[in-house]
Design a protein around this nucleic acid. Structure first.
Lengths: 191, 191
DNA sequence: CTGGGCATGTAACTCGTTACATGATTAG
DNA sequence: CTAATCATGTAACGAGTTACATGCCCAG
């Protein structure tokens, strides 16, 4: 019975992560967030639900319940098959929801100074993400393995975001565009 | 009664678009998609639902039903207030789901040649998006209005994506990294 | 040996998607 | 003037989020 891959992408990605050994819902949520989390958003509650579904489908087996109802799941053979079938399907286009851009788009409708504040706040967060990706990249060195290549997307993405912030017309504040202190500190990543 | 902005971001954005005059659900869906659609994903069905909600909340008024049950909505004064209140709130962090990156991340689990095929297909789509943003940017010229600034994000984003594709180790095919035919045709956008 | 915080999970709700219905409009 | 297509919307379902429950663990 060729049941047409009932797997949704969220569940499927969990199967992927389970290849590295058994994990509890909590652990899965952690590891997903720490790896591709930024480009593959999911919440803990989803993880738990999908794990239950995966168990019903017979793709994973639940282990002994530990402290605090902690329940580890392990992928099994049919789970591996399902995953490998799923990952071979054409990936859907990316989906982005970027509220800050919406705010920008409707920039006329709020006090300039408030928009600036939002921009500065977001910039700060992206600065540290960029920093993280730079460190990651340094760690990977010239590695061409798939995780390294994926991480590089994060780097390029954050560089683009930063470039955008820097291109905005004098959005006041210390983190503004012509903050030369930053300039040349680190040249753009060479492709 | 200070009803704590029951507005969800989707509904709120519709209010924003209604500032330009009355629109039917269909039209709204169109205009959203054509403007910030790429960074503010939403589906037609959502639009219709949110419009009904907005009407119940008294933020919009439905006009006379036209052909094909076509119903135009107009924002009213309290809608404008609600929008302006909403747009002044700190925007949430961006949310991204990029299935291709997931596939890449688990690249070991599928035949290389298949991954290549996916990459090429996506690259093609992004090439034309990039092209669109370049035209847009040309159109905007040096304009610094909010729409232009928002569009510039699209440009930078697509440039980053393209940079990433080009950085991937010889993912075979005509669209590969060292396809010099493209090189120098257009230099990277200068900030 | 206790109380506050954190690890772990569940339940309820809201949002987003898919599939479908219906009535204009237009090509032939 | 009919069939195909497209504009417009609805309904049902599945995915994502928020709020909450519970019990372990460690600082004092």
């Amino acid at each position: 019975m060729p049941q047409k891959s009932l797997l949704n992408p969220t569940a499927a990605s969990l199967l992927g992560f389970l290849h590295h050994g058994e994990r509890t819902g909590w652990e899965l949520a952690e590891v997903v967030e720490q790896s591709i989390g930024q480009f593959w958003n999911l919440t803990r509650s989803q993880v738990y639900r999908e794990l239950r579904t995966l168990e019903e489908l017979g793709y994973v087996d639940a282990g002994q319940e530990g402290a605090r109802a902690r329940r580890p799941y392990a992928i099994n053979e049919s789970g591996r098959r399902a995953f490998s079938e799923w990952i071979s399907r054409e990936p859907a286009p990316e989906l982005i929801r970027f509220p800050l851009l919406l705010t920008m788009f409707f920039g006329d409708s709020l006090p300039r100074e408030r928009l600036d504040r939002f921009l500065r706040a977001h910039r700060v967060r992206h600065e540290s993400r960029l920093e993280e990706y730079r460190n990651l990249a340094d760690g990977f060195g010239a590695s061409q393995d798939f995780v390294a290549l994926t991480a590089r997307f994060g780097l390029f993405y954050e560089e683009a975001v930063m470039r955008w912030f820097d291109s905005l017309p004098s959005f006041a504040g210390d983190a503004g565009p012509r903050a030369d202190k930053q300039k040349k500190k680190r040249s753009a990543t060479k492709t």
